[in-house]
């Protein structure tokens, strides 16, 4: 199991569009993924769960991956968040 903590930079946080992008990426990953935000545990393969978590700009989130492709998957997701999810 690998994990990394990262800061969300999108101006309005992970609202609709970036949430959709993020969930699409997460759904492609083979590992089991959990995102930790405040006290919440979120399944990022669900866009509704990401949106409902109301992750705002400058929030710290922790992404945890476990499975055969955990290293690559974590890297893909962290890169995507860092690059602002296409925004």
């Amino acid at each position: 199991m690998v994990s990394q903590t990262i800061v969300v930079k999108n101006k309005s946080g992970l609202h609709a569009r970036p949430a959709v992008e993020f969930s699409k990426l997460a759904a492609k990953c083979k590992s089991d993924i959990t995102v930790f935000f405040k006290e919440k545990k979120i399944n990022p393969k669900s866009v509704l769960m990401i949106m409902a978590a109301a992750i705002t700009c400058n929030s710290e989130i922790t992404i945890e991956c476990s499975g055969e492709t955990e290293e690559e998957d974590l890297k893909v997701l962290v890169n995507a968040i860092e690059s602002g999810l296409g925004e």
């Binding site: 609709a16 569009r17 959709v20 969930s23 399944n43 393969k45 669900s46 866009v47 509704l48």
Partner: peptide, 12 residues
């Protein structure tokens, strides 16, 4: 496009 993602959402 966003609706499309939501309607397919596994949690929903």
């Amino acid at each position: 496009g966003a609706h499309l993602e939501i309607v397919m959402d596994a949690v929903l």
